[in-house]
Amino acid sequence: DESNKPILLPNESQSFERSVQLLDQIPSYDTHKIAVLYVGEGQSNSELAILSNEHGSYRYTEFLTGLGRLIELKDCQPDKVYLGGLDVCGEDGQFTYCWHDDIMQAVFHIATLMPTKDVDKHRCDKKRHLGNDFVSIVYNDSGEDFKLGTIKGQFNFVHVIVTPLDYECNLVSLQCRKDMEGLVDTSVAKIVSDRNLPFVARQMALHANMASQVHHSRSNPTDIYPSKWIARLRHIKRLRQRICEEAAYSNPSLPLVHPPSHSKAPAQTPAEPTPGYEVGQRKRLISSVEDFTE
Rank of each mutant, 00 (worst) to 15 (best):
Ile7Arg: 04
Leu165Ser: 02
Val107Tyr: 14
Phe157Val: 09
Leu183Asp: 05
Val184His: 02
Ile161Cys: 05
Lys228Met: 04
Ser219Arg: 11
Ala231His: 11
Ser3Arg: 08
Glu144Gln: 09
Arg18Leu: 10
Arg282Trp: 05
Pro259Gln: 14
Lys5Ile: 15
Ala205Lys: 00
Val257Gln: 15
Gln213Val: 06
Gly182Ser: 11
Ser142Trp: 00
Asn220Glu: 13
Gly56Ala: 02
His55Asp: 08
Glu294Cys: 13
Met104Tyr: 05
Glu47Cys: 01
Val107Thr: 04
Ser288Asn: 09
Ala35Val: 02
Pro273Asn: 10
Leu37Gly: 01
Asp179Met: 04
Gln281Ile: 08
Ser217Pro: 03
Ser288Glu: 13
Gly93Glu: 09
Leu130Asn: 04
Glu41Met: 07
Pro78Ala: 12
Leu113Arg: 05
His235Val: 15
Gly131Arg: 15
Asp87Gly: 09
Phe146Tyr: 12
Arg195Gln: 11
Lys126His: 04
His258Ala: 14
Val279Asp: 15
Leu67Cys: 00
Ser57Asp: 01
His32Gln: 03
Thr163Pro: 00
Asp166Phe: 01
Asp30Leu: 04
Glu272Cys: 08
Ile191Gly: 01
Asp118His: 13
Asn209Tyr: 02
Gln175Trp: 04
Asp92Gly: 09
Asp194Ser: 01
His235Met: 14
Asp24Cys: 03
Gly153Ser: 10
Ala35Glu: 03
Thr65Phe: 04
Lys147Arg: 10
Gly131Val: 15
Ser15Glu: 14
Asn4Val: 14
Thr31Pro: 03
Asp79Asn: 06
Ala247Ser: 08
Ala111His: 03
Ala265Met: 08
Ser57His: 01
Ala265Pro: 11
Asn132Phe: 07
Asp179Cys: 11
Val107Gln: 13
Lys5Trp: 14
His262Val: 14
Gln175Asn: 05
Phe292Asn: 15
Ile26Tyr: 06
Ile34Tyr: 01
Ile230Glu: 12
Ile103Gln: 05
Tyr58Val: 06
Glu91Tyr: 10
Gly149Arg: 04
Pro255Trp: 05
Arg195Asn: 07
Gly149Ala: 10
Asp92Val: 08
Thr222His: 09
Glu62Pro: 00
Asn45Pro: 02
Glu181Tyr: 07
Ser219Ile: 09
Phe16Val: 14
Val107Asp: 07
Gly182Asp: 12
Ser193His: 04
His122Leu: 12
Glu245Arg: 10
Gly56Tyr: 02
Pro273Arg: 10
Leu48Arg: 08
Val162Ala: 02
Ile230Ser: 09
Glu2Met: 09
Arg18Gln: 13
Thr96Gly: 12
His32Lys: 01
Ala35Lys: 03
Asp24Phe: 02
Ala211Gly: 02
Ala111Trp: 03
Leu285Trp: 07
Ala35Gln: 05
Asp101Thr: 02
Phe134Ile: 01
Val138Ala: 01
Ser261Val: 15
Lys80Cys: 04
Thr163Tyr: 03
Lys147Glu: 10
Thr31Ile: 08
Arg195Gly: 09
Ile161Tyr: 01
Asp79Glu: 10
Thr150Glu: 03
Asp102Met: 05
Arg69Thr: 15
Ser263Gly: 12
Val158Ser: 02
Leu23Ser: 07
Tyr29Cys: 06
Tyr29Ala: 04
Pro27Trp: 05
Thr150Ile: 08
Thr222Val: 07
Ile50His: 02
Glu144Thr: 09
Ala265His: 11
Ser142Arg: 00
Thr274Trp: 09
Leu9Arg: 09
Pro226Gly: 08
Asp179Glu: 13
Leu37Met: 03
Lys80Tyr: 10
Lys117Ser: 13
